[in-house]
Every structure is written in C-alpha cells, then in structure tokens.
Design a protein around this nucleic acid. Sequence first.
DNA 1: ACACAAACTTAAGCAGACTTAAATATAAAG
DNA 2: CTTTATATTTAAGTCTGCTTAAGTTTGTGT
Lengths: 220, 220
Amino acid sequence: MKNISKEDYLSVIYKNSDDNKEIKANLIAEKLLISNAAVTDMLRKLSKEALIDYKPYKSIKLTESGENYAKNMVRRHRIWELFLHQVVGLPWDKVHDEAEKLEHSGSDELINRMEEMLNFPEFDPHGDPIPSKDGAIPKQRTTVSLSTLVENDSGVVIRVNDFNKSFLIYLAQIGIELNSIIEVKEKRSFDNSMLISVSQKEWNISETLAENVFVEKLKA
Amino acid sequence: MKNISKEDYLSVIYKNSDDNKEIKANLIAEKLLISNAAVTDMLRKLSKEALIDYKPYKSIKLTESGENYAKNMVRRHRIWELFLHQVVGLPWDKVHDEAEKLEHSGSDELINRMEEMLNFPEFDPHGDPIPSKDGAIPKQRTTVSLSTLVENDSGVVIRVNDFNKSFLIYLAQIGIELNSIIEVKEKRSFDNSMLISVSQKEWNISETLAENVFVEKLKA
DNA sequence: ACACAAACTTAAGCAGACTTAAATATAAAG
DNA sequence: CTTTATATTTAAGTCTGCTTAAGTTTGTGT
Ligand SMILES: [Mn+2]
Ligand SMILES: [Mn+2]
Ligand SMILES: [Mn+2]
Ligand SMILES: [Mn+2]
C-alpha cells in the first residue's frame, strides 16, 4: 500500500487536464495543497515509471498506462461513493470524503463485486460518470449550468459539483437532488440570483449556487 | 492518514499480549514481519504518545488510552469483515485481507453506520468478538479445540482461527462453518487425525486442522 | 526588444518507517 | 558464577514525500 500518494496525483492529473489532455504542474500543486517543488519531485518519479510524459518546464500528459491507472482510480472512487450512498445510506455530502480514502484500499475484486451489487451503474451520486471495468466512460447527457437559464426556463438536474460539503447539504435541504425538476420563476439582473421552484416549493438561490448545478434544459 | 503503521502496531500488541497484558518486542517484529530495530524505534514513539508503557529491555504494555485505541481498531476490522461477508457477500477467506486495509480508512461514523446495518453484531465471520462502541467485549462461549475431542464426542463450531486463507477455504469446502455440528467418528492415536461427520458427510481431518477449529462441546 | 512576474526546478533539509550490522543487556545452562 | 545464547537497542543509512529558499525558464505587456 505504498501508492496512495501516486494514485492521488494520477487522479488529479486525469480530472483536471484540459481539452488537449494536458495539465500544468501549478494546478496539480493547487489541487493537492502541496508545494510546486513536491510536484516536480513526483513528476520525475511518475515519468520514470512511464505513467506521464514529462519534460522540464513543459506541460504534463498522462501516457496510456497512466490514463488507465487514473481512470481506474476514478472508477474506484465513484463506485465507493455510490455504494456508500445507496447501500450504506450515507448522504451525498459525506460520500466523497470517505471515498477519498477508501479508493486506495479495497481490491479490484471488491470494487467489481460492489459494482455488480449496484447493477453496473453509470453515474455516481453527484451525476459523474463511472468508468467501466474496461475503461469505457458512459456518455453524459448534454447539460448547462443552472445559472444560464432565464425566467420561465426549466431543467432536470443531471449533475452537481461535489467539492463543497455545505453546498451539497444545502441542496439536499432545499430538495434539489439528481433528476429534480427546477423551474426559474424570476431572475434578478443585478446579482444574477434567481427564484426557483423545485417540488412545489420556491427558493431564492445565489448565482454561485446555480453555477454548480447542471441541468438538461427542458422545452419551454 | 499518517497512522496506518501505528495502528497496526497497536492492534498487534493488543491481540498478542499475554495474560498479564504484556508483550515482548520480538513478537511484535515477528507478527509485523519487520526488524527488531524498527520495533524499538516505534516503541519509543508510541511511548512518547503515552499509548504504551515502555522501559528499554522490559516488556511492553498498552496504557489505557493505547488499549482503547487498539480495541477500536479491532472493532473496525471485525465490523468490516462482517460487513463484507454479510452485505457484500465475500467468502470468509477473503474478508480478512480486505479488512486489514479498510480498517484504516473509513470514519468512525461509517463504522457505526455499518454496525447498525448489521444489527449490532457480537461476532465476526470467524467467531471473534466485536468490541462495542464503548469498548465492551461480548462474552464468548466456552470452547475447546476440536483436536481435544475423542471418539463419539460432538460439538458446535463457535470460532475458527483466521490467519490462513487456504485453511478457511478448505473448511468451507468440507462444509464447516460457524454453528456447524461436528461429530467425531474415529480418532487415530498415531497421528491424531480424525474422521468427522458434518452435515451428513464424513471427512478425514489432520490434527493441525482440528487444532484451529474451536467448538462448544455437546453432551454425549 | 526588454523587463518583470509567474511558473517551474534545484538545493538543502526534515520526518516517518524501514533496513543491516554492531554493541549491549538479560536469561538460561553448565 | 561464568559462559553462552537470545533479546534488545544503537548506529548508520535508505527511500518516500513533503517543506522553504534560491535560482531558472518562460510568457506577457508595454
Ligand atoms: Mn485519495
Ligand atoms: Mn462524486
Ligand atoms: Mn492494517
Ligand atoms: Mn476475523
């Protein structure tokens, strides 16, 4: 079990690479809350193991084997999340932190067994896709941020950002979950806050909140 | 997550201490498959944190807080084992290795939640007692090793030693599980092997196997 | 084209958890 | 009580994953 650190680097690289599948060292350091020097160190090691392509001062890219490893970590993480949510009954704001540790522990065999129990699910509790055993990534529906909707638009919640606990707790509190239908009742141009209705109730939400909820737009 | 090593030391100390609750450094090294020097190192650290009583060259004893910590680790381990067995459906020969890693990961909250799902169980899949949240240890029934039974004795399986995978696989194969009723049909004095019957079938088992199965003796 | 800030690497160092080899203390036997 | 064997600690060194500080490279703005 000496790979926790490496595994976290690979996940972060995978999840934060740009459209060219590249990432800058700086961003890795930011995400992992460590110094740039530490990142440089590790990049050399990952490069030596052929998990990333790396030349000093250039941006970083996962190799094929690096990407496979990373994808498997994301798979492990999201299966744990869904398992904890559906089988163990943890609320969606708690599953991420638990999964962040558990992802490094159970065997692949256990992960596969849990996946089977969950009936080969495609998405985690926050709507993120779960890579399959052979690395295929379920196609996600086209979404827009809730913040882009205007008065009288409505949409189905497909995905939410999952990095802030109190955000997730608040969503649950006002009844927003995956597949909720949200209708925009009013929108205020001065701060982009909006009045929405969700399952018969109305709430005022900030632009920041709306930006982190992704919906499939419904016909007007 | 910097305590994996310490936690393993504490568990080993707890599980291998003698009747005086003492243990020798040597045995710790053996169980953890590391050098004596490494053990000395760690003992100094554990002592500094008041988790053990330690004077150079003397035997080691957990302090109260050390024992509490250790007991909680055993609790975590055994709840994981039972959860994996009962909820996830892993065979009893696989749960130990998984639990050995998982025990360091999930939060206490998760452990408590699993315990609740399992209905506050008292014993793990191998018959070992699960310490409760407040440290109480369920009373075990009085058992003897199967190897001490003689011809025509019979007993109920209450506990099995769980450190050897192929031993557990073989037990499952011949139908021995917790609560199985075993009857001794023949016993051979030259090697102490015995012919037993368990759920309508008969098997020849070695003394070594019998030594690792613990039964509650039934009236003749 | 040049200057400067941001990004990145190097250097030196530290803490954790190990190792092997050598020194020392304790226990066991003669 | 002395010798010998065993247990334990010390010493010195390794590897991982981090830190801060200092030095380089690169990209941007004027
Ligand atoms: Mn992690
Ligand atoms: Mn998620
Ligand atoms: Mn362990
Ligand atoms: Mn067990």
